[in-house]
Write a protein that binds this DNA or RNA. Structure first.
Lengths: 369, 369
DNA sequence: CTGAAAGCGCTAACAC
DNA sequence: GTGTTAGCGCTTTCAG
């Protein structure tokens, strides 16, 4: 208590970051001066433009290093009329947020696509349609970002039209059917994954294969459901055992009960995601139905836990990180007015683990022919 | 091939957002003109400062609405010398990224704390120490953000010192012991959760309680481990059964094998997180050891799946969203030079499910006394 | 209470 | 090749 006006007053959570290093941050002018060149020369060097002699260039780089100077992103953004940032608006129900394997992986992929290109990723989490719309509006009107990723597309999604109106470039992320006049969507082939799952079960002798669908209205839920339907039909089976759930564990449990309560329960279930599948296994086990002996189960996503539940989950895996990277690169090309490279993503992978097995012949079950 | 220089050339994923609406975005000048006032009047209104008559104020708001104008964040950032953005650098190994329930929830919480305050969240995912350091450096030197969240603190973490050097404000996120001269950390009481888990098992008659620790070097891993140790000692038990893992499912499985291979395997295991615990259950089951009949298991995190595995996992839950919100508010106060409010987070919750049960008296097991 | 004017730090024409 | 200069759109003194 002897240091008079103590610079650090009070036991707060605050942290005052000016011990004395409040020395004005270097600017492009300082660098130019130190390197004996004009500001534009410095600018040119840091923007990869020609027109600076090798000698000057070396001095500039050296001066910048000595001053630890980097172009101020705010000033740069203002004068280039570009934010140098890309936006991602995530709309999620609380329960799904921390379960969804997509979001973190996608973000990681996007980052790796952005890396070194001078773009930042601006994230916004919203909880409803209204706030979602407002988020895009704000991104655009405040020039926070130069473009956005559109994920979790819904049937009749209004966001593409909204963004067109706002003049904000975007990439459609997901297994979305292309629409003329719209940017081509970037996504993996969910359909192929589901079809392989159904065929796999068929090959194991299953003829009564149910589907627990994800939240309706989302393109990826509906697509997975239709893929199941189509494959069933192609195999000559009736696609009648479907329960609509919402991707949550609770809904998966509920749907499973519903299916198992049927007079003729299915011998296999294809779930719209792993979370529902794992909940389904839990429900079956609880009811004394052994997986995979009495019931085969397939998930979708291949969450890291999938390999560690009992029994290990047979599921469909996508390379989400790769996917995010491709989206980032495409969006950058887009906002910079360049032609994006053709995107070619690895196909989905069908991962067979312990939750699927040969169908047991149950008397009374709808066996083949 | 007849439309000469077609404005939309090629079947690309690109999307050109200028159908004609390239109408120059409104600026503060347009609003001022329309409202018959000066630019500063508009600025004052949008910054909540007094000095504008009610009439003028109303006209300004009306004009802004008509023009759909919002202050340009880039220009505002430049003139206020503030980015109006907060940064989060996430360093994660690929496998853990999509499993970790913390990250998405924390982000959601931060967003809800930011909401309406005009700050954006800038995210960066990095994969190593070097890129991590570079990320903070870049955030600071380019003035991308006004402050950052520091998560996943490590013992002897160099980031606080780095950020002090860079003059970038931060909040420490986690169950970190406070250090004088540093901003007070914001976190929940991991220790209490682990201690409750151990006491719970003790009350069930377990005397041989092992711990599978998370990645060493992280404050939260070490804290959980020490909490287990301390509680064991207080209960008069020997804290000798500990295996160091790394939070991944694979490591949890390995650690579990190791413990079960012991001549006198534990009757209960407290894991550093749910993922390892679930992998542990899987391993035990595989080996013919029934959970909870032969082995009790406790996790940490309460991932959404925890309730749906077989058996449902007894675990410790934290209110991560609430936590993120508090961090956001504190950091904003910090960067704005205000005194942050005292943070009071809800205590951890111990969730008892089906993976713990009374200890079975095994002959030869180290029973009480 | 209102208006004019000087920046914020950088980019990009445009002369030299 | 290199330097000069005028903005980018907003905030914020400082006169009126």
């Amino acid at each position: 208590m002897d240091a008079a006006p103590a610079p650090d007053a009070g036991p707060s959570a605050a942290h005052d970051p000016k011990p004395e290093a409040k020395a004005r941050r270097a600017t492009i002018g300082d660098v130019a001066e130190r390197a004996q060149v004009s500001k534009s020369a410095v600018s040119f060097v840091f923007n990869g433009r020609s027109g600076v002699s090798e000698a000057a260039r070396a001095r500039i780089l050296e001066a910048a290093r000595e001053l630890d100077w980097r172009p101020d992103s705010r000033a740069r953004a203002l004068s280039r009329s570009r934010a140098q940032a890309l936006g991602l608006v995530v709309r999620r129900e609380p329960e799904l947020l921390s379960t969804d394997p997509f979001f973190p992986q996608f973000v990681a992929g996007v980052e790796s696509g952005l890396s070194g290109l001078g773009y930042a990723l601006v994230l916004q989490v919203v909880d409803g349609e209204e706030t979602e719309r407002a988020a895009y509006h704000q991104f655009a009107r405040e020039s926070r970002v130069d473009g956005v990723f559109l994920t979790d597309l819904r049937a009749d999604d209004e966001r593409p039209a909204q963004l067109d109106g706002l003049g904000l470039p975007y990439v459609l992320v997901g297994p979305v059917p292309p629409v003329d006049g719209r940017p081509r969507p970037i996504g993996v082939d969910d359909e192929a994954g589901v079809r392989r799952a159904v065929r796999h079960l068929y090959a194991l002798g299953h003829r009564s294969i149910a589907h627990v669908a994800g939240a309706p209205g989302y393109v990826h839920s509906d697509l997975r459901r239709r893929a199941w339907e189509r494959e069933m039909v192609e195999l000559g089976l009736e696609p009648d055992l479907v329960v609509v759930a919402d991707f949550s564990g609770a809904s998966g449990a509920r749907a499973t009960h519903e299916l198992l309560d049927l007079p003729r329960p299915p011998s296999a279930i294809v779930y719209g995601n792993d979370l529902m599948a794992i909940a389904g296994i839990s429900v079956a086990t609880e009811r004394g139905i052994r997986v995979p002996h009495d019931l085969s189960v397939v998930g979708f996503d291949d969450v890291p836990l999938a390999a560690f539940v009992v029994p290990p989950l047979t599921t469909v895996r996508q390379e989400v990180i790769e996917w995010g990277r491709a989206c980032a690169r495409t969006l950058i090309a887009l906002v910079e007015g360049r032609e994006p490279e053709e995107v070619r993503l690895p196909p989905v992978e069908f991962v067979v683990r312990g939750s699927t097995a040969a169908a047991r012949h149950r008397p009374g079950a709808a066996a083949g022919r």
